[in-house]
Structure formats: structure tokens, C-alpha cells
Design a protein around this nucleic acid. Structure first.
Lengths: 121, 121
DNA sequence: ATCTCACCTGGAGCGGACTCCAGGTCAAGC
DNA sequence: GCTTGACCTGGAGTCCGCTCCAGGTGAGAT
């Protein structure tokens, strides 16, 4: 099978990022310089798309761009940074765990409030 | 016991909002005009503090200010808006539920990635 | 050959939610 | 009675993460 490449539109479809966001991520270095075809249009590789999946995950769990950048740099720097990457992800995982707990607690509050409102109707 | 009032500093301590945020919330109408002492300094009531607890909960679960404002207006409008408030909170509760599920799924992804990194060390 | 439409670039603009500042007024502990 | 520090107001500024725009080029279906 041929090496698959994706047009911008396909990547938008796959990753849920807007085209502008993809360009922005490339501009700030969150995404390594994407290949171009003869006309200068982006042709994303399978790897690019995979990496974007990781970014989506980090973004959706609230990681700030500055830290995603740090992770991107570690990733680019080679395998010797894997322990650092583990550390970074573990720290982030703990934050996410906290977020979940926090949300569950807040949710109890909301549901209580709803019950209270029901009780006074 | 006397009706308790809180100084700005006490409210900051209790609610975790900054003083600037409290003023901002009052300015935009999220918080009803707070009482002042003779010198014009804010003296928050027990009710104010309770309401701020609700706001904190909504804010921390990602409700945008515009919607908090709507909730505030309903609350001010009287008891006949209780069904609307229930509706609003229920909708929000569903969003929060979704957030939690989403985070749990993303978290699995992160943990997988960590495992993968561990496996290649 | 033409036309439409996806893309391109660099740079300006935006929306949300605060946060900070200048310049001034009281409060209250020593 | 002084000083320090908590507060006040109105308004400007900041930060983040995009999002939009103008002006242009190439692709690819008809």
C-alpha cells in the first residue's frame, strides 16, 4: 500500500481541528513543518495525523499550549527524552484525575440544587 | 446572633475569587449590588456568599458568563422562574456529565501513551 | 479553455474572562 | 494623631487561543 497522505480537508475531517487551527499549530511549532506538494499545498502524513490526535487529547484535557509545545520539543528531540515525556504525561494525568473529581463534586452540588428547587415547587 | 456580614477580604478567603473578580461580577450584574458601609466599602451578606458559591460551581464546570447571567436574572425574577432554573441546571448537568466522560476517555488515551513509552524504554 | 473552489501567506482582529492601574478615601492599630 | 493598609472607582490592558481577511495561486471537473 502507498504511503497515505491527507489533504487539509481530510485532516480537518479526521481531527476536528479547523484549517486555521492546523495552520496556527504549524506556525507556532506545535506541528512540525508539514510537507507541501508542488503547488505549496499541505499534504499531511499519517504521522502528522497521529500527532494531531495526541494534541487533541492534550488540548481537550486542558493542557495549555506552552506545555504542549514543550512536549512537542521533547518528542522531536529523540528517544532519550522518553522519561521526561512520561513525567510530563503523568503529571498531566494527575491533573486530569483532579479535574474529573472536581467535576463530579460540582455535579453533586448542581444536582442538589435541582433537588432543592424541585422540593419547593 | 447578629446578621453576619463579610468584608471583601473575607469573601476572597471564603470563595476563592479575587477581589477584582468580585468587583467585576458585580459590575456586570452577576452579583447584585452589594451593600456598602458608610465609607462605601463592600459588606457582603451571607446570601451574597452563598450565591458566590453557586457561581463558583457553575464557573468551575465551564458555564460561560452569559449563561450565568441568565441564571442570575431568573433567580432575581422570583420563584415563578424555578422551573426555568431547573431546566437550565439540568441542561448544564448533562454537559458536565459529558465533560466527565470525555475526560475519562482522554485519560485512558494518556495512560495508554504512558504505557507505550514505558514499553519502549 | 474555463470556472470554481480548495489552498496559500502574513498579519490583523476577536471573544472571553479577567487583571491591573492611577488616583483617591476611610479604618483602625500603635 | 499618624501611618499603614484595605478599599474605592472608572477605565485601560492582558492573555489565550484561535479566527478572519485580503489578495493571490493552482487543481481538477466540465
Amino acid at each position: 500500500m502507498p504511503v497515505s497522505v491527507y489533504t487539509p480537508a481530510e485532516v480537518v475531517e479526521e481531527t476536528g481541528f479547523t484549517l486555521d487551527t492546523l495552520r496556527y499549530y504549524e506556525k507556532i511549532g506545535l506541528l512540525e513543518r508539514v510537507e507541501r506538494n508542488a503547488a505549496g499545498q499541505r499534504r499531511f502524513s499519517e504521522q502528522d495525523v497521529g500527532w494531531l490526535g495526541m494534541l487533541r487529547c492534550l488540548r481537550d484535557t486542558g493542557m495549555p499550549i506552552a506545555q504542549m509545545l514543550r512536549f512537542a520539543e521533547l518528542t522531536r528531540a529523540g528517544d532519550h527524552t522518553i522519561p521526561d515525556r512520561i513525567k510530563l504525561l503523568e503529571e498531566h494525568d494527575r491533573l486530569v484525575e483532579g479535574q474529573i473529581e472536581n467535576l463530579m463534586e460540582r455535579r453533586r452540588y448542581i444536582r442538589n440544587k435541582i433537588s432543592y428547587y424541585r422540593s419547593v415547587l
